[in-house]
Amino acid sequence: MQFDAQWLLLALAPVFLACIGWEAWHLSRTRGHIAANGAPDNARYAWPDTLCNTALALMHQGADKLAWLVAVPIYAYVYQHFRLTSWQPGWAAWLVLFVAQDLLYYVFHRASHRVRWLWAAHVVHHSSERLNFSTAFRQSLMYPVAGMWMFWIPLAMLGFTPTQIVSIVLVNLAFQFFVHTQAIGKKPGWLDYVLNTPSMHRVHHARNARYIDRNYAGVLAIWDHLFGSYVAEDAREQPDYGIVKPLGSCNPLKATFHEWFAMARDFARMPDWRSRLAALFAPPDWCERHDAVRFAPAMAGTPHSVPENNTEGEFGSRNP
């Protein structure tokens, strides 16, 4: 475990680019521009979308480098003063670190769909209406502001050094590149009980009512099965990618900040501090449901709608 994972990611960069090149070539040979349902094929590459993904990746990497300058000293302080144990280098330590971080990633990922403050950063990753390997690069520079780094603090308490924490986080994210594709079909069902697969992750990126806000796995699929968030991809219902309210833009700045601006507007217009805090930290569609209840008497007899998702509790909240 004593290695710099950033060198590993640098070594993997040609692999990522080769996968993108292969996928673009493969899709151009096997799929038309129009899907079977008559809609534009959402697997194929489009220059505006791919360039937006690339710009977002570069912005994210810059922000990430700055975030580690703040987060690593915090991990070091917790490790020095609050760690519960110390680990000898070896497979046992690596396995504990891998499983613990993957569980914490599941918690972070699920919270990022349930807490609007976190969703404001994570929505960037979901806002494309295409899904291919380049979508894995579609990340937000606002993750440090949202607080993603705080989810790894328990690893320092478990006795892992800052270098080990940063390394395992980057390795986990590197694995996830390979699940962002439609070129690999659904594999035997047992695999979805062990690992995050392209099929599982296609469900996660879909905005269909039955798929929305499911399959939060990073590497291990066991957490989705254990905590009841797993849904299998159904060949009878193809995933429809993107967010409930489409972004409608390939501008990386709009993709990054549109939800932060919307959240700020909702915060400012709420009538009291309780509702203002809910506008920041409740599920992402809380404001719409709040408005539907608040203005219901005035809108009696007037056609209006409440978001179909998240009307019955835990699952569904992808309104930007």
Rank of each mutant, 00 (worst) to 15 (best):
V15I: 15
V15H: 02
C19H: 09
E23A: 08
H26M: 03
L27Y: 01
G32L: 02
R44M: 01
Y45K: 11
W47P: 07
D49Q: 07
L56E: 11
G62V: 13
W68A: 08
I74Y: 01
A76W: 15
A76T: 10
R83M: 10
T85W: 13
A92S: 09
A100Y: 08
L103I: 07
L104W: 13
R116A: 00
L118Y: 06
L118C: 03
R130E: 08
R130S: 07
F133M: 14
P144H: 00
M148N: 11
W149Y: 12
L158N: 07
N172P: 00
H180S: 08
P188W: 03
W190N: 01
N196F: 02
A209V: 09
N215T: 05
A221C: 13
F227W: 02
A232F: 07
E237K: 06
P239N: 06
I243R: 04
N251V: 12
A255F: 03
A255Y: 04
F261N: 00
A268M: 11
A268I: 04
P271C: 07
L280S: 04
L280H: 04
E288Y: 08
R289A: 04
A292I: 06
F295V: 00
F295H: 13
A300R: 15
H304T: 03
G316T: 00
R318Q: 12
